[in-house]
Every structure is written in structure tokens, then in C-alpha cells.
């Protein structure tokens, strides 16, 4: 029981991170119908930017952990957003409206480029940050196993929750969010109503990258290490989360993220961690075969 509770806490933490990445997949798919395969690497890039800045600020400039992390997080969001803005402009925009595979192939190219660039400049091995905020709260004690909740886990879930609430508000209630949804549903009509579709798509990439950067920085904080190939596996898992939730659906992405996080940790606990990645990918295959529109896929009530 204690172990189950502990894994529940761990799973929700990991799931929050997947959920934040999954939003980037789902938004881009919603608005231009493209699976942005480079999104996982954007997440990895953001973790590296955060890592380098954290090391620079704490080790060389002697800043305390908290302010250093805030600076690293914000800078990572800004730089990652800039990167995604640039690749949308350079590698995807011109391919929109051409055959469906073209932007996908371009995205795979960008993914390979980024993963290799980081490998060449940073090496292929794990890079780590010094441990920070290692305090934990004991939830149960005296039993066979002490269930703990770390400050970092609280921070991760709280930041994710707050960010999602803010993001949900923007999408549902602001002119910007409406323009975004309008482009998703009928870009040509949106343009007839004065919406700059290119700008809206670019903004979607920027927002997706910023959320992935929050995920990347929190991932680094929680696990302490990152390596250049970390774009791939967490990327595919977050993509699985988006598909499981129903690609195109924002609440679906978050739900899918939490489920994948839980499935992975539970599987690792009860069936051995060697196969925990297999569990997540099996979910992808099963979802695609039996439930392609996902858990919260679109209710199609449209008249044509």
C-alpha cells in the first residue's frame, strides 16, 4: 500500500511533465494538422539551457538556488520559444499546404539536427546539476516503507497546475485564444475575419515551446540529469499522452500525460523497470488501433 501511494505521487509528478510537453504536440496538430516530431528535442534543448544557466549562475556567480532556478527557467522558456519560432518559420511554414508527409519529414530532420547538435557540443552522456531542494515531507512513517513527498514534487505539480489554469484561461477567454481556436477550425474563415493565420500559427509554436521549456526545467530539477538523447523517449511518451487523450484536445493532453506518467511508474514498480518504456509504447499502439480519437477526442457534432 505504501509503495503504491509512493508510486502514485511519483507518477503524478512525471505525468505533469508529460502533460506540459503533450500540449505542444496537441496544439500544433490541432492548428496545422502536423505531428511536430521535433517537439521532444525542444524539450531536451530547454533542459540543457536550464542546466547550463543553473551551473553558470550557482557555480560561477555564486547565486542561491532559488533565484538561479527562476532565472534559468525564464531564460530557457524564452530561448526555446525563439528556437521553435525560428524552425516554424524556416522548416515548416513553406511546407504547409503541400503533401502531408512533407512537414513531418522536415520535423524529423529538425529533430535529428538538434539531437546531434547537442551531442556534439555537450557530449552524449548524462550531465547533472548539483542537488537542490532535497527536503521531503514524510506522509507515512514507522511502517515498512516511508512514503515521502518532496518539495520538488510539490513545486512541479503546483507550477504545472497554475500554468495550465492560466493557459486554459487564455485559450478559452481571450481574443488571442479565440483566434487560435478559429484557425484550428477554419483558417480561411479566420483570415476573412482579420486573423493573421501565420502569426497565430507562429504563436502556437512559441507557446508550445515555452510550456515544453517549463517541463524541461522541472524535469531537470526532479531527476537532476539530462542527456542529448532525452528528446526522444520522453518526446514519444508525451506524444503518446497526446494521442491517448485525443490529439487536438487540451484537457486530453493533460489527462493523457497523467495517465502515461502513472502507467509508467506503476509498471516499473510491479513489473520491473526494464520494460517500463514498453508499457508506454504499448499504450500508443493500443490507442491507435482501438481508439484512434483518444479519450477526449472531438465530439463530432458538426453540420456541413
Amino acid at each position: 500500500m505504501e509503495i503504491f501511494l509512493q508510486q502514485l505521487i511519483n507518477g503524478v509528478t512525471l505525468g505533469s511533465i508529460y502533460g506540459l510537453i503533450a500540449i505542444g504536440y496537441t496544439m500544433v496538430f490541432g492548428i496545422i494538422g502536423m505531428v511536430n516530431f521535433a517537439h521532444g528535442d525542444v524539450f531536451m534543448l530547454s533542459a540543457f539551457i536550464a542546466l547550463l544557466l543553473l551551473l553558470l549562475l550557482t557555480q560561477m556567480l555564486g547565486l542561491a538556488a532559488a533565484p538561479a532556478f527562476v532565472v534559468a527557467l525564464v531564460a530557457s522558456m524564452a530561448l526555446t520559444a525563439l528556437w521553435n519560432f525560428a524552425i516554424e518559420r524556416v522548416a515548416y511554414r513553406r511546407l504547409r499546404g503541400s503533401f502531408r508527409l512533407a512537414p513531418l519529414i522536415s520535423a524529423i530532420g529538425m529533430s535529428t539536427f538538434l539531437a546531434n547538435f547537442v551531442t556534439v557540443t555537450q557530449g552524449p552522456n548524462n550531465k547533472s546539476i548539483p542537488p537542490m531542494w532535497d527536503q521531503v515531507i514524510a506522509i507515512t512513517s514507522g511502517g515498512a516503507y516511508d512514503v515521502t513527498l518532496s518539495y520538488k514534487q510539490i513545486l512541479i505539480v503546483a507550477v504545472t497546475g497554475a500554468l495550465l489554469a492560466a493557459f486554459w484561461f487564455v485559450v478559452q477567454k481571450t481574443p488571442l485564444g479565440r483566434a487560435q481556436r478559429a484557425c484550428e477550425q477554419d483558417a480561411k474563415m479566420a483570415a476573412l475575419l482579420g486573423v493573421d493565420v501565420n502569426r497565430t500559427v507562429a504563436l502556437t509554436f512559441v507557446i508550445g515551446a515555452a510550456l515544453a521549456a517549463v517541463a524541461g526545467s522541472l524535469y531537470l530539477l526532479q531527476y537532476g540529469v539530462v542527456k542529448s538523447s532525452d528528446g526522444f523517449v520522453p518526446g514519444v511518451k508525451a506524444f503518446t499522452a497526446a494521442v491517448l487523450g485525443g490529439i487536438g484536445s487540451l484537457p486530453g493532453a493533460v489527462l493523457g500525460g497523467l495517465l502515461i506518467g502513472l502507467i509508467e511508474t506503476m509498471w516499473g514498480q510491479y513489473f520491473g523497470s526494464d520494460y517500463k518504456d514498453v508499457a508506454a509504447f504499448s499504450v500508443l499502439a493500443i490507442t491507435l488501433i482501438f481508439m484512434p480519437s483518444g479519450l477526449m477526442g472531438r465530439p463530432d457534432v458538426e453540420k456541413v
Binding site: 481556436r181 477550425q185 474563415m189 479566420a190 457534432v301
Partner: peptide, 13 residues
């Protein structure tokens, strides 16, 4: 915009 409310459609206009 079929997944927006009537009110939101008018706001879009």
C-alpha cells in the same frame, strides 16, 4: 466556427 458558441462566433466577427 462549429466548436465555438454563437456568442464566440459573434465575438470573432
Amino acid at each position: 466556427f462549429s466548436r465555438m458558441t454563437v456568442y464566440e462566433n459573434l465575438q470573432m466577427g
